[in-house]
Each structure stands twice: as structure tokens, then as C-alpha cells.
Simulated assay, not measured.
Amino acid sequence: MRKWLGVAVLVCALTGCSGGQGEEQAGQSQPLSTVQSDAASPAANGTTALPASTPTEISIPKIGARSSLIPLGLNADQTIQVPPVDQPMQAGWYDKAPTPGELGPSIILGHVDGNKKPGIFFRLKEMAVGDEVLVSRQDGRTAQFKVTHVEQIAKREFPTDKVYGDTQGAELRLITCGGQFDQAAHSYKDNIIVYAALVPPVS
């Protein structure tokens, strides 16, 4: 298990998502622990990976999401930082984890909404097995990922090991808030988690 796993547990809170929900998402009920999966991922059983390189942009064609990527570290309480809630269309990558395309699970976070506007991952819940995620990198390469698993789960049941644990290949996790909006807590009750695996580059 990677050494940064222990300090990453509390990412499930994603408290920044509470900063002004969009009307279309707020209060919308979705089934708890909805799961789509495909055991046969392109890199699940191999070690195909790229060298480390800072990611610069994410593009998700199916949901029309595109954003530059800012590095996210840890807060003083050891929770993972989130992108600024007043810039809901900004996505960020957790810089203590592997970079996208590198061996292991890379983590990209985005808001479902914020400042009373839809966020970069507002439509993340629409992702399905086989969908494409593209991450541009500083080395000029674009890491292409294929979605293998989509999950909606209560924040109190966040699957820490599955999200942050070691993997046999280069993988990606996209995380945002979802489910019902808890007016009292000013946050969503669930997380939407998209799991994806690197598509091996054509040699």
C-alpha cells in the first residue's frame, strides 16, 4: 500500500462541493451505491504505464468537460485540498499520488457545482463503462483512459482502499459529489467515483 494512502482517507468529504449548489443537482435523488463495472480493463492485468509527468489538462468528450489541472495537496488536517469552490469549472489533480499515466492510481477532483453554477464534473454521473477520458501532460503525451467502473456511494462508506490502493497498471479516479443535497450539512450525501484504466499506447 502506498505511503500516501493513510493521509488521503478524508478526500471523501469533498466539502468544497457545498458552496452553492446548482438547482438542477440540488435535492436530486439517485440510487445509493449504484455500480457499473467491466472486469476486462485495458491495463488491469498488465504493467503498461508512462513515466511521471505533470498533467496539464483533462478532457472528457462524452460530457463536454474540459479543464486545465491545478495541483492539490493536503490541508492542515491532512484532508485533500479541493479546487476553489468559487471556480467550479476548475479541476485539480492530487499531487501526492502518481501522475496520470504513471503506474498506480491517479486522482482528479472536480466540483459538481459551486457558486450557484454547474461544476466541471456536473455530468460525471452520466459516465459509463467504455467512455474515454484524456489527460494531457507536460511531456507532450496524452494519456488515454477507458472507464472500467462507475460508482455512487455514501460518503460515510467511501471505498478508500479501492480508490487509493496499489494497482497493477496505470489507472485514474475521477471524484465529485452527488446524490441528495443535505441542506443542514450544506453538502451532498454521496460521492460519484469514476474508475478508468490507461489504454496502452500504440507502438
Rank of each mutant, 00 (worst) to 15 (best):
G130W: 02
L174R: 03
F181V: 00
T34V: 08
A128C: 06
A40T: 12
V147R: 03
Q87C: 03
L50F: 07
S68F: 07
C12F: 13
L10G: 14
S106T: 06
S29L: 13
Q87A: 09
A97E: 01
Q21N: 07
Q30Y: 11
D190Q: 15
E102Q: 15
P98M: 07
A65R: 00
G114Q: 07
L32K: 12
L103T: 08
G22A: 15
D131Q: 09
N191M: 08
T148R: 13
V112Y: 05
L50H: 04
P31Y: 10
E24Y: 09
R137I: 01
P51G: 01
Q25W: 09
R123I: 00
V133F: 00
D139I: 10
G110L: 04
K117A: 15
T99D: 13
K162I: 02
I153R: 10
D139F: 05
P200G: 13
P159C: 01
V150Y: 01
T142D: 10
N45L: 00
F145K: 06
P200M: 13
K189Q: 15
E151P: 02
P98K: 06
A26M: 12
V199K: 13
M1E: 07
A52T: 12
G101E: 13
N191A: 05
I120Q: 04
V135P: 11
D86Y: 09
A143T: 03
T15D: 12
G130H: 08
A128W: 00
C17Q: 14
A97I: 06
D95R: 15
G20A: 07
T34C: 01
Q28E: 10
G104S: 01
S187A: 13
G169H: 02
D182E: 11
I120L: 09
P105E: 08
S187K: 00
T47A: 09
L14Q: 14
E102F: 10
L109N: 07
E151C: 05
P71V: 04
A44G: 14
V9F: 10
G114I: 05
F145L: 11
M1W: 12
I192E: 06
V85F: 15
S187L: 14
A143E: 09
H111Q: 08
Q90K: 12
S67E: 11
T34W: 10
P118L: 03
G104C: 04
T160K: 12
G46T: 14
T79D: 13
G92E: 01
A8T: 12
Q87N: 14
S18G: 15
L50K: 11
G64K: 10
I107L: 08
P98T: 03
T148H: 03
S29D: 10
A184I: 06
C17N: 15
S67N: 06
H186N: 11
K146P: 00
G130Q: 07
R173Y: 06
G165W: 08
H111W: 04
L50Q: 07
Q28D: 05
K3F: 08
V11S: 10
